[in-house]
């Protein structure tokens, strides 16, 4: 499904049909999810490219937050540990149209269910896109149109055993790669039993992956390193 195509792009499987058909003086983009919604848009353009890649899973059904929360079965981390685990995250697929050195979002859809949650108190807390993941010790086999894989390095900098069952990430700074699995590489640094920070690394999970276009960079002033503090605990 993913890649860069001309205006003859088309993809279909059991769950989704996406494609562009030429019309009289314009192109027609259409997308239908089996048992779900459908979208049709007209593209008034002579020539251009269609870019299909996973985007930050924070846009559907509408964009209300910048934060992704991944919940998992509780883990106990030993003092000063530095361990890698693999989690899944929901994939949202962005369809972009590009021409004359400019890119426009055409459509965003997902085959994963959406659920939102509140991290922290209702006053001062964060609305998060909530996702529950199993914890894997190796890269799991998943449907790349539905699920992505996150390699999470858990770094316990404290002298204590720490229990955690969730991680919160900020959309600004997410680096998604595709081609093979849809992936992100992140770190969770535990500063105290109730405080941690998360950040993403700008590299692929496996060799040969391509970097996805990001939605959450153009909207934000440039900063060199972006971390997301988890101030309301990890359980």
């Amino acid at each position: 499904m993913y890649g860069r195509f001309g205006y003859d792009y088309g993809y279909s499987d059991d769950s989704v049909t996406v494609g562009i058909t030429p019309g009289k003086g314009f192109y027609c983009y259409s997308r239908t999810i089996a048992g779900g919604d459908s979208v049709q848009k007209r593209i008034l353009s002579d020539a251009g490219r269609i870019i299909v890649n996973p985007v930050e899973p924070l846009n559907l059904p509408e964009e209300i937050t910048n934060y992704l929360e991944i919940a998992f079965e509780p883990m106990i981390v030993e003092p000063f540990a530095n361990k890698d685990v693999f989690l899944t995250f929901p994939v949202e697929i962005g369809i972009f149209v590009a021409a004359k050195k400019n890119i426009q979002v055409l459509d965003i859809f997902s085959l994963s269910p959406q659920k939102y949650s509140l991290y922290g108190p209702s006053s001062g807390g964060l609305i998060t896109r909530w996702w529950h993941s199993e914890v894997f010790d190796a890269v799991p086999e998943v449907n790349h149109n539905i699920l992505g894989i996150m390699q999470l390095t858990i770094e316990n900098t404290t002298r204590e055993w720490v229990e955690l069952s969730r991680a919160v990430f900020e959309g600004y700074g997410m680096k998604i790669y595709y081609g093979g699995p849809v992936s992100m590489v992140a770190r969770m640094k535990i500063m105290s039993p109730r405080l941690a920070e998360t950040e993403f690394f700008d590299h692929s999970l496996v060799e040969g992956q391509k970097k996805a276009l990001e939605l959450y960079t153009a909207r934000e002033l440039h900063v060199v390193r972006r971390t997301c503090p988890m101030e309301w605990g990890m359980i």
Binding site: L60, P61, I64, Q114, K115, S117, L118, W130
Partner: peptide, 11 residues
Amino acid sequence: IWEHPFALKNP
């Protein structure tokens, strides 16, 4: 309630 995306998981 569970099937509605914006009916929050927590609280």
